[in-house]
Design a protein around this nucleic acid. Sequence first.
DNA 1: CCCATATCTGCAAAGGTTCGCAGATTTGAA
DNA 2: TTCAAATCTGCGAACCTTTGCAGATATGGG
Lengths: 121, 121
Amino acid sequence: MPSRLIVSREVADLLKLLAHPDRLRMIEELRLGEKDVTGIADALTLPATRVSQHLAQLRAHRLVDERRAGRSHFYRLSQPQLAGWILDALPFVDVRNRLDEGEHIDSVRALWSAQDPNTSH
Amino acid sequence: MPSRLIVSREVADLLKLLAHPDRLRMIEELRLGEKDVTGIADALTLPATRVSQHLAQLRAHRLVDERRAGRSHFYRLSQPQLAGWILDALPFVDVRNRLDEGEHIDSVRALWSAQDPNTSH
DNA sequence: CCCATATCTGCAAAGGTTCGCAGATTTGAA
DNA sequence: TTCAAATCTGCGAACCTTTGCAGATATGGG
């Protein structure tokens, strides 16, 4: 009965995919709707090549959908609730860090979970 | 305003820590209460050394608490809700795999989210 | 004290990830 | 067609993770 083995591998793959600061910021950046590669790169102050490489990974795992319009490729979260689920991880962030940087966490939760008119959950 | 940078790094560290099939299974194994190293190793059919190494990582990030009794070291989740939060990730597992292995996911959710008060199985 | 059990730590090989850079591709405009 | 903008892909160096194994440490019993 290898169900648990298989599923734990799949969940681990998902978490590995998410476990990069740039990709997390990109996902939260897409929370409110679609954005093109340079839009994301500018918003996060990252080289567009790197953003494109990260998007390729998210695409390969079907976490984002692509829409091409002219020269731009617009991306959106295929399951927007993902962004909220990630925010729910904040309480589990190492307690030592929370003591030192609790304000950061609180302000980021406020910034990131600021309510969107679009996506329903 | 480096809050988002800092927090995205911390969340990424947490996800990286969780992003291993053995560690995920260990966390779900501890969902119902404490267990010692050989108990976990036997339950998951893993070498005890490896379980110990994984526990060292979880310990370093304060995800588990340790209680020593005689020769045994009992571990428990410091924040048991973590196990439930991980199960909430199942809907985000790659859709291609879900189509092939949806039964696995469903049965594992049933197994892992069972609320039974008895620890043994 | 000596031994077995339970667990931890250090190490090195194998394997995976990240990142910038160079070059390829696609598209729209002149 | 030729060019420039936007994006993608391939590659290699640097870096990080995983894993088994050997040896260290701690505990309880005889």
